[in-house]
């Protein structure tokens, strides 16, 4: 464990807590894409298949349980909770996430570290995580006023993977056989997808104006 990875995990945790806070306290999911939340639940479900077979550390297991629990409960809130679901913008959140899942699955069948069920699922979860934010970014472009919590949620979600990139660089130079091209490339693509959001987020923060993405 290194400081970059810890910072990444804590930032990721904070993004999930900000979202749960928003949904649980003000009972609203306005501006949040259910499609992205469902993709994230699928990402964690396929990546943490080994949660009970490969014990890494208490920290690792606890964090996996938190990410699994939070992502599925957010999907449950947005689908089932009578108050929260009312604030869900069904008409605007129209990204066909099936068209993200299928290519990632096909790519995982071709590009993986080892052609075993677990490794294919692991590669699938990495490719899917890289593109899972797309429905959310599309929704942000459509909804005019982005509230602070939603903006912070997306910002933290993008920042965590940026920290991970520093973690991979650090591990590459400190651990002799640490090479994971699949992780590195999908992590880089994922972070690049946030580039324009970061640009507008930083500007809105610098000029102290409401975050507004160009249509």
């Amino acid at each position: 464990m290194n400081i970059f990875r810890l910072a990444g995990d804590m930032t990721h945790l904070m993004s999930v807590l900000v979202l749960l806070l928003k949904i649980h306290t003000i009972k609203s999911c306005a501006g949040i894409s259910l499609k992205t939340q469902e993709l994230y639940a699928l990402v964690f479900a396929t990546r943490y298949l080994d949660i009970f077979t490969d014990f890494i550390s208490v920290y690792n297991t606890i964090m996996k349980l938190i990410f699994l629990g939070s992502s599925f409960s957010i999907v449950w809130y947005m689908r089932r909770h009578k108050l929260v679901r009312r604030s869900y913008d069904k008409e605007q959140d129209t990204f066909r996430h099936f068209f993200l899942v299928l290519p990632c699955l096909l790519l995982a069948l071709v590009m993986n570290e080892k052609f075993t069920f677990k490794e294919v699922m692991w590669a699938f979860s990495l490719y899917l995580e890289a593109v899972a934010i797309l429905p959310q970014l599309v929704l942000l472009q459509r909804t005019k006023n982005i509230d602070n919590l939603t903006g912070q949620y997306v910002f933290l979600l993008g920042a965590y993977r940026a920290f991970y990139i520093f973690n991979w660089i650090y591990r590459y130079f400190t651990e002799p056989h640490y090479v994971h091209w699949i992780t590195w490339i999908s992590g880089l693509v994922q972070t690049l997808l946030y580039a324009d959001f970061f640009y507008y987020y930083f500007n809105s923060w610098k000029n102290n104006v409401k975050l507004h993405l160009p249509a």
Partner: peptide, 10 residues
Amino acid sequence: EDNETPHDEL
């Protein structure tokens, strides 16, 4: 023992 190194990152 399976030679797969378990993925230690989240």
